[in-house]
Amino acid sequence: MFENILFFISSFLVLGGATMVVLSKNLMHACIFLLFTLFGVAGLYLTLGADFLAAAQLVVYAGGVVILMLFGIMLTGGTENKENRFGIEKIPGMGSVKTYIVAGVSILFIATVVLKIIANYMRHYQQTDLPEYMTTVERIGHSLLTDHILAFEISSILLLGALIGAAMIARPRKS
């Protein structure tokens, strides 16, 4: 019951936020809607029993990435939507009714083929009983330091490289 309510709230946040990220004209608004989407994804992680991941999602995205993006938008001074300068409506013959019909028909065709393939698997898929919710912190810790130790260390080196690289690239240079 509680999981279902959380799932519906989170999926509403995810779908609405993602749609608004696509549709909103103002980049600053898109960034705030991205924040809502990421909160929704954290809620979905909770319904999937991944408590540590949900918290990591909140810490990294809400505290780090979104603020970085906001800073980036502000420092480059552009909240307006950039027009597609060399894009689809500049090419003659594109963006007319004919192309939309062709696109619609091809989408229907591809979707039919893909659904045919998937249906074969879905027919044999049975929902088994789900495991109980349990904390994942200890298991993630053990797994990170035993099975995935190499990837863990490499990711720390990646983060160090990203830190130094970002500082080097963004440093103002005297010309």
Partner: peptide, 9 residues
């Protein structure tokens, strides 16, 4: 920590 950083945003 995660929820508290919303205040910064």
């Amino acid at each position: 920590l995660g929820v508290g950083s919303v205040v910064g945003v």
